Structure formats: structure tokens, C-alpha cells
Simulated assay, not measured.
Amino acid sequence: MKKLLYVTYFLLYTSAILAQTAGNPVFKGWYADPEGIIFGKKYWIYPTYSAPYNKQVFFDAFSSTDLVTWTKHERILDTTAIKWAKRAVWAPSIIEKDGKYFLFFGANDIQNDNEYGGIGIAVADNPAGPFKDYLNKPLIDKFHNGAQPIDQFVFKDKDEYYLIYGGWRHCNIAHLKKDFTGFIPFEDGKIFKEITPENYVEGPFMFKKDGKYYFMWSEGGWTGPNYSVAYAIADSPFGPFKRIGKILQQDPKIGTGAGHHSVIHDPKSKDWYIVYHRRPLDQTDGNARVTCIDQMFFDKNGLIKPVVITNEGVKKNTIK
């Protein structure tokens, strides 16, 4: 069975190359929780290195000019540069500001407020690093509103920056200071506003389209086949967010555990892409996850159509 699957993957990968499509997965290795973003004329993906927590202590990044050919940038950050991070760094989120690249990450998988770790920030002059610790301590090191400080996403809305994060079925949004050294309280004095929608588990992501805020998240357990992505739409980044439905999930003929995603969109293009991880059919290990890209479409009402996951992946597309 394994031999047949390997042959099938090889043939699909070969046909994808000949057809000038990326093929899924888009690069080799066990990688999960991918954040896709555009910097200049390149697409970038920043994933988790998917391994047991004590080995998951560094980040690689990948860049491409066309979505098909990817260049690996090894160890752009590891725990030797983050003295307080001892194990399990994951789910990076990156943003460029004033010529600097700020990489937000979770570390140490803390289970309560007595353990040290949480969400940190690293900074570099180049999207390929090397990154160094920005604060020399976690930005968030405690549970707020029940949210484990993991799965961070940095969202820019006009000239304001927000951190959206949270595991353990709770999601918070906080208003970042301009220098990313802390947070600006909301009008009611609170720092962390809970925006948890129905069925939320982890992996938040937000984008804006046609004046609406699309909030997306992962549901189910990350080690299982039913990991998936759902979404909601609101008029504000603070919600309220009413769940609309799932748009990404397993296809038993293609792969399982499709979730923890991000979205790439070139504003000068009509194309939207969903970047996500899934588990190959011949794998059951929780850490056996690969990074994939497929197209994402909207209907005439602006609702996201269910994503069709593929082995072929997406066609070559340079940034406009």
C-alpha cells in the first residue's frame, strides 16, 4: 500500500511540474501552521517545523516568485536566540513595519500561569532573517479570558495593528502599540477582548475584503482527520462573529486533517489562495503534516466557497 502511494505521489508531482502547477505539498518536509504573505515581489511561507515538542525548536521559511518553485531559508530563528524559549516554538506570524520584519511566535506550550512562556516577538532587517529576540521576554505570558497564549496572528487595519490569538477554545484580540512593545487598552480599560465564535478551537486568521472583516479559525483536534477551517464575517474586527460554516476540511481521497491556514492575496490580482497543512493518506502520526496551497473562491454575495483540496496545487502566478 505504501509503495503504491509513493508511486502515485511521484506521478502526481511529475505531472504537476509538467503542467506548471505547484503540486501539493508545495515543498518537502513536515511543516504545519503555515502563514503565507507577500513581501515585495515574493510570496513567503512561514510554517511550524512539525516534530515532537522538544525538537520543534526552530523555524524555516520558504520564498517563491511564482508559487511553483520554492526556496528554503533554513533556521531563520531558533531557541538559541530566544533565551526564554526552551521547547515547542510554533505558528509564526510575520508583518513588515518601518523596514523591519517582526515575527510573532508561541513558545513552551504553557499550561497555566505558573509556567513561563507564551507569545514572543523576534525582529530582523530581512524576511529571511536572521531574527533576534525583540523584547527578551514574552509579549503575553498569561492566560486571559481562558485563551492559551498561542496561535498568534498580527492583523493590520489601516494604520492600526492588532494581535489575534488563542488556544483552548478561546480567542482574544488586543490593540498593539505602534512599537509592538505592549498593548493599548480599549475604551473600557480592558487589554484583551474576547471574540470567540461558535466551535472555535485555535488558529485564528483575519482579512478584509470589500469593507468586511473575514474571521477564520480551526476546529477539531489537530492530530485527527477532522481538523478543519470555518469562518464568519462582520463589520468590525471585534465582531460579533457568527459562524457561517466550514470551508476547508479533509478529502479521504486526497488527505486528512486539513486546517490551521492562512490566506494570500495580491491586491492587484483577482486570485485568492489558502495556505494550509494536511496529513498524507499514508500517515497517522500527529506530526506528519505537510504544507499545501489551493485556490479560494467567493460567490456573488461575498461568501467563501468550500475549498477543493488537490494534489496538483495552484498554477504559476507572479506578483503583479
Rank of each mutant, 00 (worst) to 15 (best):
F143V: 06
A51C: 13
K156D: 14
K3W: 11
Q56L: 06
K158N: 15
I173W: 02
G221R: 05
P252G: 05
E115Y: 08
H170S: 10
Q249E: 13
P240Y: 02
V68A: 10
L67K: 14
F58C: 00
N199S: 11
I184L: 13
N136S: 11
Y49D: 11
W44T: 02
N172L: 02
I95N: 05
Y162A: 03
F104K: 01
I293Y: 10
M216K: 11
G182H: 08
C171S: 07
M216I: 14
G302D: 15
I247E: 03
F215V: 08
F143C: 03
P52I: 07
R169P: 08
C292N: 13
F238I: 02
T48G: 12
D60P: 01
M1N: 12
F59W: 01
Y101A: 00
T310G: 13
V7F: 11
F155S: 03
W272F: 09
G220R: 01
I254E: 04
Y31D: 13
M216E: 15
S64Q: 14
I254N: 06
L139V: 10
D210H: 13
A128N: 01
P225E: 10
S64Y: 15
Y6P: 10
P25F: 04
E219Y: 04
A81L: 00
N145K: 03
N226K: 09
Q152G: 09
N317H: 13
K177V: 12
K316W: 08
D235N: 04
A61Q: 00
